[in-house]
């Protein structure tokens, strides 16, 4: 409604590019990373030695060695930051009327914005709590290896999750927000990019995206319950191959 002013800002000049980039980055790499992350975490439920399969999975990721940090920054943190910042602008420019017009798509519209904010807050908390970035400010609980090369990936995660009663519910809300935001974002991006045009194709895409979201939600909740019920008193197995010194700062 407000007409753009005469002076064209840099964002206005590349308006389309910026918005499309926002949509794209939400899917790849951020969305793709979420899938990998949740599926990896779900390996906590794998049969066999407790946390063994999970440890193997994360060892594979950490095999990147010194490259891991730049990869994380370029392919996860920066895209996520861009998606979030522009996302906040989008949220602030919207005027939800889900109370007034209670159509499914309108409720999803509002939910997309709400889950976006929840996801952002949760990810912020999650990084502080788990990532070594958080260490200087009392977080950074996750350790891939303990003393003497003990495999502590699952153990440190579980300890952090079980530290207080409210942490697991916070994770549940946070993870489900991320999952909804991705699945619904996938559905809207199919419209945004002009792939699903007719209502019928949008309906079909809706079912597919819902199924996709359901799978991710199950994976995420499964992982959470896995860590929630992980026996933190059992001694961690010792890792035999030797990356311990390099990646002791965790994931």
């Amino acid at each position: 409604m407000a007409h753009p002013t005469e002076s064209v800002s840099l964002q206005d000049k590349n308006y389309f590019l910026v918005r499309r980039l926002h949509s794209l980055l939400g899917l790849v790499p951020v969305g793709a990373f979420l899938c990998v992350h949740l599926l990896t975490n779900a390996t906590i439920l794998a049969p066999g030695e407790a946390g063994g399969e999970f440890q193997k999975s994360i060892e594979r990721i950490h095999a990147l060695g010194p490259l891991l940090v730049p990869v994380e920054v370029v392919f996860i943190f920066l895209p996520l930051l861009f998606h979030s910042l522009l996302g906040f602008q989008i949220v602030f420019n919207s005027q939800s009327n889900a109370q007034q017009y209670r159509y499914g798509s309108n409720l999803r519209y509002t939910a997309q914005r709400t889950t976006g904010i929840l996801a952002f807050l949760f990810i912020f908390y999650h990084i502080w709590q788990m990532h070594w970035f958080g260490k200087p400010v009392g977080g950074g609980a996750f350790e891939l290896h303990g003393a003497a090369g003990a495999a502590t990936g699952a153990m440190t995660t579980a300890v952090a999750i079980q530290q207080a009663w409210w942490i697991a519910p916070v994770y549940a809300i946070g993870v489900l927000s991320c999952v909804f935001h991705l699945a619904n974002g996938l559905w809207t991006s199919l419209i945004t990019w002009g792939i699903t045009i007719r209502p019928e194709s949008q309906r079909v895409a809706g079912y597919v995206c819902a199924a996709f979201g359901l799978v991710l939600a199950i994976a995420g909740m499964g992982a959470l319950s896995g860590f929630r019920t992980f026996d933190v008193k059992s001694p961690p197995p010792v890792v035999t191959d030797g990356h311990a010194d390099v990646t002791s700062h965790g994931h």
Binding site: N97, Y103, S105, R108, T192, I197, P199
Partner: peptide
Amino acid sequence: ADCGNSQNCVKVCPKDIPLTDSIAKAGRD
């Protein structure tokens, strides 16, 4: 790019205009 896909438009349109079809086409085009 400023469409948020709430799709209220097509539901309240008194003339049953397929507005969301137009919007998706605009996205593609």
